[in-house]
Design a protein around this nucleic acid. Structure first.
Length: 524
RNA sequence: CGGGGUGUAGCUUAGUUGGUAAAGCGCCAGGCUGGGGGUCUGGAGACCCAGGGUUCGAGUCCCUGCACCCCGACCA
């Protein structure tokens, strides 16, 4: 028998490095977990930018595939705009340019010479979409509306403090940009998209979110309303996971205020359309890691995992018997993957490492001649939801052992081979639900309604969210931020009770300026 | 952009009053093995971040850069 050897997909993955426990140092835990997940990501030579390695690329691919199907069903068409924007485009909308100016990267030279006018690397594409709308008489009549467009692309924002996945200098996202004949149509669609974001987060990523409207000072620069979904990470910090903006008509006007896009409505009046934009980025992958990960590594919800199940054969000293185990493992992988499994992929072209892909699920079969422990750890660190072990003893009794990433070893299931596909499916379904349930429980436990400012400050220090009445002033926002070292006003939840009238702001003592209380939290 | 820190093998680090570099893990070859990182033997692998200075001699001391990390302010 050949010696133990392994195939590495990332040099660091097999290091016996320890993961810092979450309770000890959460940011360090996050870094450890990411860098020890095989093939997840790498640092890049560009400041603040990461390389999305195969695992994160597949995760984002899944988000994209799932969400694209949803928006296509609403009639949204995908387009692809240039990644560079003439700099003068930004000057049309003052608040917009003020909002993004510091973080825009600029191209000044090309073709061996200085450009007559610099180009900005897109931080977002509002201005390019508006340019596109205005071309070729695309919008002339109310019959041309709505116009529903989206693009999948990357954008660049020179943020001061990058964090892998959560805030990288270049990030990948979708940005939808739509025009409507009436403000009501616009608002309805903007909210419909937010529902899609919430569904993606809760049903696929297993992350419960609060849907709500951002306070004015947290709005998109130049917009009139921003709606967002907010998720809670395991340290109690909030993460904005997707935003849908009602933009003002100012975006559709030139620097002299003349409309760039207008149409004739039913009453034959020249009208500027109503504009919304909405985006969801690779940040949500960071949310998945932060929400579900444990002290052994990342944990991927089955509905988004690129590989739902790994088949891990283990060997004895009898070569002929081992060959039978290999054969059985391949057969089992195909069976678990499903009837319509037509594709068997040699991973990275290797001969001992296969992926069985069906419409239902993807199973990886790790035939490498190395210890079970090594294969197991690889899958644990990869966050693979389910593992199946099969060895000579199992084969002798036509069975296998099925284990879950989020269950204890005692909860392993010994099952007849024929029943494995069914049991795996059941386990995936249950685990998906469990992950959501656990996250939801934490969200509820870590949300408090403080009776006074002391309690509120304590909640922030303890990594909790507060639901509080707000006097609506910026002074209070600033004071809160200073007193709590970074507490922020997140959103007015759609489903919050309208009970704030008559209540007093715990920070200023002044009466609430709103019908609803607002969520406050520290945030990423 | 402020405050702090770190640059030595693929990774984590050691390196004494200055004397041309060490270990663990990983990697390669093989033996015994094999149900959550097994073990033994042998081997490959580093112009010590860059530039300058002090010195007979610099990983080590001194300057100047650069890069990265952590903590703040900005943000999806």
């Amino acid at each position: 028998m050949a010696s133990t050897h392994s195939i590495r997909y990332s040099p660091k993955c097999m290091a016996p490095a320890r993961i810092t426990p979450r309770t000890q140092n959460f940011p360090q835990w996050y870094q450890d977990v990411l860098s020890l997940a095989p093939d997840l990501y790498d640092e890049s030579p560009v400041t603040g930018c990461i390389t999305f390695a195969p695992l994160s690329t597949k995760l984002w691919g899944n988000v994209r595939r799932i969400f694209d199907r949803k928006i296509r069903a609403l009639g949204v068409e995908n387009i692809m705009l240039p990644m560079l924007i003439p700099q003068n485009f930004f000057e049309r909308e003052k608040e917009h340019v003020d909002g993004f100016a510091p973080e825009v990267a600029v191209v000044t030279h090309a073709g061996g010479a200085k450009l007559p006018e610099p180009y900005a690397v897109r931080p977002t594409s509002e201005t390019l979409f508006v340019d596109w709308y205005s071309r070729g008489g695309r919008i002339q009549s109310h019959r041309d509306l709505p116009l529903l467009a989206n693009q999948w692309c990357s954008v660049m924002r020179w943020e001061k403090r990058p964090r892998a996945f959560l805030r990288t200098t270049e990030f990948h996202w979708q940005e939808g940009h739509c025009l409507f004949a009436t403000e009501q149509d616009c608002r309805e669609f903007t909210l419909k998209i937010l529902d899609l974001y919430a569904a993606l987060s809760e049903d696929i990523l297993a992350i419960p979110v609060i849907r709500g409207e951002k306070p004015e000072h947290e709005r998109f620069p130049g917009g009139i309303a921003t709606y967002a979904i907010e998720g809670m990470m395991q340290d109690g910090k909030a993460l904005q996971m997707g935003t849908s903006h009602m933009l003002s008509q100012a975006f559709l006007k030139g620097s002299e205020g003349k409309p760039l896009v207008s149409f004739l409505n039913e009453k034959e009046e020249t009208t500027v359309p109503f504009y919304d934009s909405w985006g969801l980025s690779t940040r949500v992958l960071g949310a998945v890691f932060m929400t579900h990960g444990d002290d052994d590594g990342i944990v991927l919800p089955p509905n988004i995992a690129p590989v739902q199940c790994a088949v891990l054969p283990l060997f004895g000293s009898d070569a002929a018997e081992n060959e039978k185990v290999r054969e059985a493992a391949r057969k089992l992988g195909g069976a678990v993957s499903g009837q319509r499994s037509a594709v068997s992929i040699p991973v990275h072209g290797r001969k001992d490492w296969f992926e069985e892909v069906s419409d239902e699920l993807t199973v990886r079969i790790d035939l490498r001649d190395c210890r079970l422990g090594e294969k197991t750890f690889y899958q644990i660190r990869s966050g693979t939801p389910v593992r199946i072990e099969i060895g000579p003893k199992d084969l002798a009794e036509n069975s296998c052992v099925i284990k879950s990433r989020i269950r204890t070893r005692e909860q392993a299931i010994k099952a007849p081979l024929a029943k494995a596909p069914e049991i795996v499916r059941e386990m995936l379904k249950e685990d998906q639900a469990t992950l959501f349930k656990n996250a939801k429980k934490m969200q509820q436990e870590k949300t408090v309604e403080p009776a006074n400012y002391e309690e509120l400050k304590k909640a922030m220090a303890d990594g909790k969210w507060g639901l509080i009445p707000w006097d609506g002033t910026k002074e209070t926002v600033d004071k809160f931020k200073a007193d709590t070292s970074g507490g922020t006003y997140r959103c007015f939840a759609f489903d919050a009770k309208e009970d704030a009238e008559g209540m007093k702001d715990p920070i200023s003592g002044k009466p609430s300026a709103f019908k609803k209380r607002i969520y406050v939290a520290k945030a990423y």
